[in-house]
Structure formats: C-alpha cells, structure tokens
C-alpha cells in the first residue's frame, strides 16, 4: 500500500541529469555542467534528509553518484585542472590560496561523502528512511552545505581564471583526458 507522502516524494524527485559526452569537447563548460549536477546532488540529499519514508530510487541514485562520479570529478580537478592552472596562472592571479582551500575541501568532501554513502547504503539494506535518524540527517545536511560552498568557490574563482589562462592546446588535452577517464578513446565523444 502506498502512502500519499511516498508518491509526493517520488513526483518531487528530479534526480541528477545525465551529462552529454559532447560537452567534454569544451572542458570548462563540462566542469560547469558537472558543478550543476553536483548541485542537483545536494538538492536530492537535502530532500532525502527530510523524508521519513523509504524510497530506494533516489537513495540509490545518490549512492551511485558518490561511488562512481564524484571521485572522477575530484581527479579531473586535483590531477588535471589544478596542476594546469598552477602552471599557467600569473603570480597576480594568486591562485594558490584558492586551490589550497579547494584541495583541502576535496579531502573533507571525500570523508563526508564516504559517511553519507555508508549511511545511505545502510538505509537501503534496512529499508529505512534517511530522514528518520537524527545523526544521519545531520551528516546529509553537513555534506550538502559543504559541497554547495565548495561549488560556489569553484564557479566564482577557478573557472573564470581557467577561461582566461588556459590555452587552446590545454583545453584540447584536457578534453581528451576527461573523455579517457570516462572510458572514451579519442574521437568517441563526438567532440
């Protein structure tokens, strides 16, 4: 038997949009779109943190995103975009201060994200509503809040500097590696 509230959540659940592989051909647009998807993740987590009934679909969606997509995005930044920026930026860009903060936050994200994933996997195993547990609710909310701050800084500072400083060759190389990291050989992205 379905309760009214369950249907309500399911209808309200927009989920995380898939990203078009073609977007990787313009890597900074791809990063921006990825950040948008991370915001969708935060919205989904916020909804889960307030729901008191069990709906496995959105829970599994968050678990999968944290397991497969979020770690690749951190590699995209930590071992590709950020090192490129360190090589290209001018001293007056003062990029190191921001990159240092973001790198530290990536570590925090990974730890908080692991906690969120473990909690949601437990919810799936026990068919529990994520919002029913006080500690769980707090962890979900903490992750979403931290992630939103992090995304705001990246969009406001990192991407604009990258648009200014990265060369066309940098962007071409970045595009190829973004695709390869996702299992696509050159020419398979349509870009």
């Amino acid at each position: 038997m379905t309760r009214v509230g369950e249907v309500g959540l399911h209808e309200a659940h927009d989920g995380i949009e898939p990203i078009s592989p073609e977007l990787m051909a313009t890597p900074l647009d791809f990063f921006f779109a990825e950040h948008f998807r991370h915001r969708q993740l935060c919205a989904l987590i916020d909804r889960l943190s307030t729901t008191t009934f069990f709906d496995p679909g959105p829970i599994a969606e968050v678990v999968d995103f944290l397991r497969f997509e979020a770690p690749i995005h951190i590699i995209d930044e930590e071992e590709d975009l950020f090192p490129l920026l360190r090589r290209r930026c001018l001293p007056e860009d003062d990029v190191e201060g921001v990159l240092g903060v973001l790198s530290a936050e990536h570590k925090t994200d990974a730890i908080l994200g692991r906690g969120v994933r473990d909690y949601l996997e437990h919810c799936l195993d026990t068919r529990a509503a994520p919002g029913a547990n006080m500690d769980g609710r707090r962890d979900l909310a903490a992750f979403a809040a931290q992630e939103r701050r992090h995304l705001a800084l990246e969009n406001a500072v990192v991407l604009p500097i990258a648009r200014q400083r990265l060369t066309p060759e940098d962007l071409t190389g970045l595009a190829r590696r973004l695709a390869a990291r996702r299992g696509m050989a050159p020419g398979e992205t349509g870009g």
């Binding site: 930590e78 950020f82 190191e96 201060g97 990159l99 240092g100 903060v101 790198s103 530290a104 570590k107």
Partner: peptide, 8 residues
C-alpha cells in the same frame, strides 16, 4: 609553504 594541501 603557500600550498596548504600536502598532497598538492
């Protein structure tokens, strides 16, 4: 020293 994150 200006790079706060050790791994970076």
């Amino acid at each position: 020293r200006g790079i706060l994150d050790f791994d970076a």
